[in-house]
Computed example of a mutant assay.
Amino acid sequence: MDAADTLDELAQEAVAWRRHIHQNPELLFDLPNTSAFVAEKLRAFGCDEVVTGIAQSGVVAVVKGSRGPGRTIALRADMDALPMSEQTNLPHASKVDGMMHACGHDGHTAMLLAAARHLAAARDFAGTVVLVFQPAEEGGAGGRVMIEEGLLERFGIDEVYGMHNQPGLAVGSFAIRPGPLMAAGDRFMVTLRGRGGHAASPHETPDPVLASAHLVTALQSIASRYADPFDPVVVSVTHLAAGSASALNVIPASVLLGGTIRTINPETRTAVEARFRAIVAASAKLLDIEADIDWRPGYPVTVNDPEMTRHALKAARSVVGTDAVDDDCPRIMGSEDFSYMLEKRPGSFIWLGNGATAGLHHPAYDFNDAAILHGLRYWSALVEQRLG
């Protein structure tokens, strides 16, 4: 049996693992069943070390090469699902109400498990591979928590690599770019406070609803009139709550609005926050309203190291050919907490084609099992590229 046949068969086995994880989704740091499943597999594969409990439910495995010492590289997958109800009607659909793997973390975990099995069996490299199974990517900053608990120092990690599926990108293809790949994503909640009163007498009470209308419009000036048009900024107000449909003759005492701000440039991120605060204060003052801001810093910009990106490119091209790898893909204004690892160690993050599926975070989304073999081959080629 040659290596290609081995990986083909291993990818087919990984499909079953992926579907098991998909049927049993768990959220954020609360991943007892997923973590136990992953740790059990890693121990059965014969990894040199399997550590659990990092960032509550994270799992880390170590595989040492047979060719002696060398650098240590980390391969990372995320494990958590989303608080959504699945609408795929597939045989392997989620068995848990209100939870589903709508971002493909089930596939990421299965591919890295398959890579762990292959590497533990072959060990044809010099150095060490650390396989990181991370909790709480979906809003919990699990990657940051793992770093704070000493992940990088404890395992002597020199480089870090991540991979994420991408709907719309053909199966059997990859996409990557050096430098900024994904945006920083900050969140905000603003409470506008008046006094409340009768809708027939608006002159007697400051109106937070009117103030909110001004504010939603004014905030769009940040991207359209304050930011350099060649420096991407996206401001989205996604939540607005005020009053009651059963009391339409009442001017409410307060309005709550919230949303996200996404930036690529760290300096722009700081400047945009300052501009946001100034606009909120000015909009409130204009209509005699009080304003409270709850600013919630999110994940930083995901920045690919140029040299590590070249290594990732070489590995991807060895798997699917040069024409199937986009080396200058568009930046995406979504955010990703692998960015915390890339702030501390050189590395890269690559997109894996998921085909013409529903988009990420959509209730009809499902990870494409046909992508597993390509992801497995990429991880194997990357280890060979960096440690072979």
Rank of each mutant, 00 (worst) to 15 (best):
V250D: 06
E9F: 02
A3Q: 13
G347T: 09
Y161M: 04
A183M: 05
R277P: 01
D97I: 02
Y226E: 05
E336W: 03
L10M: 12
H92T: 00
M111K: 07
N89T: 14
R187P: 00
I251S: 06
T357S: 13
L376D: 05
L82G: 03
M182G: 00
M333R: 03
D158M: 13
V303R: 00
G375W: 09
G139Q: 02
V319M: 14
R262K: 11
L169Y: 10
V216N: 05
A55L: 09
F188Y: 13
L313M: 15
L28R: 03
G140S: 06
M182R: 08
R317V: 12
P178W: 07
K95E: 15
G70P: 10
L387W: 12
Q23G: 07
S318P: 13
V62K: 11
Q166P: 02
D326L: 13
A213G: 15
V63K: 05
D5P: 00
R71V: 14
A110I: 00
E149C: 08
A200M: 10
I73K: 08
S224L: 09
G355R: 01
A14C: 10
V160Y: 07
V325C: 13
R144C: 03
N265S: 15
A200C: 13
A245G: 14
L313D: 11
L257Y: 01
R67A: 15
D292N: 10
L387G: 03
G388V: 13
R154Y: 08
P297E: 09
G150K: 07
G46R: 04
D337I: 00
A218Q: 00
G70D: 13
H92S: 03
A3E: 14
V272P: 04
S236I: 04
V190M: 02
W351R: 15
G98P: 12
I372F: 02
A3G: 07
L219C: 08
A241H: 15
T357W: 00
C103N: 02
T217N: 12
I157T: 02
R275Q: 15
I279E: 00
M163G: 01
F29Q: 04
G46A: 12
N304A: 11
P306H: 11
H198S: 11
T34M: 01
A245W: 11
Y161A: 05
C103T: 02
M341H: 07
A364F: 01
H362P: 02
Q12C: 03
T238A: 09
L28Y: 04
L256H: 11
A274W: 07
G150E: 07
A39K: 01
G98M: 14
I332P: 02
D80G: 13
P252C: 07
T191I: 05
V383W: 08
V216T: 10
A14N: 03
G140I: 00
E40T: 07
A282G: 12
T309E: 12
C47A: 15
D8N: 12
T205I: 10
F133P: 07
H214K: 03
V15R: 06
G243C: 06
Q87E: 15
P346Y: 05
G388E: 06
L75K: 10
